[in-house]
C-alpha cells in the first residue's frame, strides 16, 4: 500500500491486440457501422457501442435469456453471438419492436402492451428478453397449449417470478391477435 495518492502506473504498451475493423450491422432496419474487434459479442455491440441498452446482460453465458434478440426473425442469445458473424443479418431488438408492430397509439407492439396489461414483469430487467422471446415463439408456431408456452419460454429466467403473468400475456396475444403475433 502506498501512503500517498496512487500514481498512474506507466508501462510500455508493447503487447499486440487484434485489429479492429468497421462492421455494419442492420439493427431495427437501420444500418449501423461500428469499429470493433472480433471479440465483441452482439450483446456488447448493442449495449456498449450502439447504446441500445434495452437488450440486457443477465449472465453473459447463455443461461438466462435476458439478451434475447431476433436475428432474421429467430430468437437467439446475443451474448453468445459474435457481432462480426451477423453483419448480413436483420437484427431486431426490443427498441425495434416498438416501431415494428406499432398498432397502439403509444407505438407499442401487441406483446409489449400485453406485458403491461398482465403485469408480466416486476423489476423489468428480464422483460425485453422475455418479450423478444415471446415474439419469436409465436413466429415459430410450435406452442399449442399453455404448457407448450411454458416449456418454450423456459429459456428466459424471471427472478422476480412473474411467470404466470408472462404466460397470460403471451396467450392473450396468441389468442386475440394471431395475425400480429
Amino acid at each position: 500500500m502506498s501512503n500517498q495518492s496512487a500514481t498512474i502506473t506507466e508501462a510500455p504498451k508493447t503487447a499486440q491486440l487484434p485489429r479492429t475493423s468497421i462492421v455494419t450491422l442492420t439493427v431495427n432496419g437501420e444500418q449501423r457501422s461500428l469499429r470493433i474487434a472480433p471479440w465483441t459479442t452482439l450483446l456488447d455491440a448493442l449495449r456498449e457501442y450502439l447504446d441500445l441498452t434495452g437488450t440486457k446482460k443477465g449472465c453473459d453465458h447463455g443461461q438466462c435469456g435476458a439478451c434475447t434478440v431476433l436475428v432474421d426473425g429467430k430468437r437467439i442469445n446475443a451474448c453468445l453471438a459474435l457481432a462480426v458473424m451477423v453483419d448480413d443479418r436483420e437484427i431486431t431488438t426490443i427498441e425495434g419492436l416498438t416501431k415494428e408492430g406499432s398498432a397502439t397509439p403509444d407505438g407499442l407492439h401487441p406483446m409489449q402492451a400485453a406485458f403491461i396489461e398482465h403485469d408480466a414483469f416486476q423489476c423489468g430487467y428480464c422483460t425485453p428478453g422475455q418479450i423478444c422471446s415471446a415474439v419469436g415463439l409465436l413466429k415459430e408456431g410450435h406452442a399449442h397449449s399453455r404448457e407448450d408456452i411454458q416449456e418454450l419460454m423456459s429459456g428466459n429466467i424471471c427472478r422476480c417470478g412473474a411467470y404466470p403473468n408472462i404466460v397470460d400475456a403471451i396467450e392473450d396475444v396468441k389468442n386475440h391477435q394471431p395475425d400480429r403475433a
Binding site: 447463455g62 430468437r75 437467439i76 442469445n77 453468445l80 422471446s133 419469436g136 423456459s154 429459456g155
Partner: peptide
C-alpha cells in the same frame, strides 16, 4: 438447452 440456444 432453450429455444434460443437451439436456434443458434
Amino acid at each position: 438447452a432453450s429455444p434460443q440456444l437451439r436456434n443458434m
